[in-house]
Design a binder for these strands. Structure first.
Lengths: 209, 209
DNA sequence: TGTCATTTTAAACGCATGTTTTAAAAAATA
DNA sequence: TATTTTTTAAAACATGCGTTTAAAATGACA
């Protein structure tokens, strides 16, 4: 395995676990068993390493996810919200084939992108992968036409918050859950739990006020 | 105003904006116009400062919130989920009387507590203020008895995610919303938008699987 | 095999961090 | 007022950070 990949593989785990700021290049290069200077040699800077990391996942996920959303939009004239959100499941879980714990790691990284580093990654993602958002909004609009643009805006952000926050603390939450309910929990299980929640949330009746 | 308060007031704003790790004691003491060493003198360490910060808010919020939840539990044998979540509104907004932008700052800090610093604050909060969680779970259980303890656990965390994430990016979101919809938005307005969403989410039908 | 570009290595750089120290100032106490 | 305690102040400390440097090792190719 080449140095670049070794760094990416070690970095994504640490970044997902502890956040971008709290993870040092020395930890990364130590785990990756490469020289400290290798990060700056191969990626230029820590910031560029983070971007490369997100790009690796998004390039993998984006086409699959977009085509899943397009499929919903083509097959169903008026899809249910559950159908729309279910379209996310398979593409997200396919990241587990790509990398071990890929789904969990990616979603955690996504969460970190929104809270760490003053949102420069949020900009990077939304400007580089608009197809996801556009197709998603279209599908929601078809599923629930009575929802105003304004309501869609807010409820999609609520949904994003649900997913992102949950995955950022999934590790800890799964620990608590397993202790309290003595049951095995995995990422796929959590995702399937989220779907009815966000579908019902987005589908809530519009306030009459 | 004494040094301790000056530090707390400056720190909470910076911590809410940039996170705990990304905010240095030098920034805080500079904004607070006190000496750098004052933090360690009055609080012992940065970690203790953060705890004191959260304690200041939670000591203010906890009794009001608990009594609001108790009231729901006493007045309604089977409250609606909207009633349960509406019980949060007034206590949360009362933080604005306590401190300028108190509601927003507190919720942002709460969000940081869950993602920063490997969850030591999460432990601090849940072990020190169990009354909130207990009464909340009780109310939800009454409103929706068919929901298993496990489902309640997860859906409450989803709800937490919705609120916390939204508030963490409220500044940016309000800007976008006001540009796109040419309408005035404030924190209270966002909170009232969240309620039907989370009420519907928690009230979603339980998966038959 | 010898040459040149690429990659790896160890060391250092400059800077920022949280914390500690030591002394001066202020406040409280008697 | 004299003495003790509490608070502020400036400076230094030790540590860890991202990054850079310059030399050594490696690889590709003539």
């Amino acid at each position: 395995m080449d140095t670049k990949t070794k760094i990416l593989n070690a970095a994504e785990i640490l970044f997902a676990e502890k956040g971008f700021t709290a993870t040092s290049l020395r930890e990364i290069t130590s785990d990756a068993e490469v020289n400290l200077a290798a990060v700056n040699y191969h990626f230029g800077s820590k910031k560029e390493l983070i971007k490369a990391l997100m790009k690796r996942y998004l390039d993998q996920l984006s086409p699959v996810l977009v085509s899943a959303l397009v499929k919903v939009n083509e097959q169903e004239l008026k899809p249910t919200l559950e159908q729309v959100f279910t379209a996310f499941v398979e593409p997200l879980l396919s990241l587990n084939d790509y990398r071990e714990n890929g789904t969990s790691i990616f979603l955690q990284l996504l969460g970190r992108s929104y809270t760490d580093s003053q949102g420069f990654l949020r900009w990077f993602i939304t400007t580089n992968y608009p197809g996801i958002i556009d197709n998603f909004v279209t599908a929601v609009h078809r599923a629930y036409p009575e929802l105003s643009t304004e309501d869609i805006f807010w409820r999609l952000h609520f949904t994003m918050g649900t997913a992102v926050f949950t995955m950022s603390s999934t590790g800890a939450l799964i620990d608590i859950a397993e202790n309290d309910f003595c049951e095995k929990v995995d990422v796929a299980g959590v995702i399937y739990r989220i779907i009815p929640y966000v579908a019902a949330g987005v589908g809530a009746p519009v306030s009459s006020v």
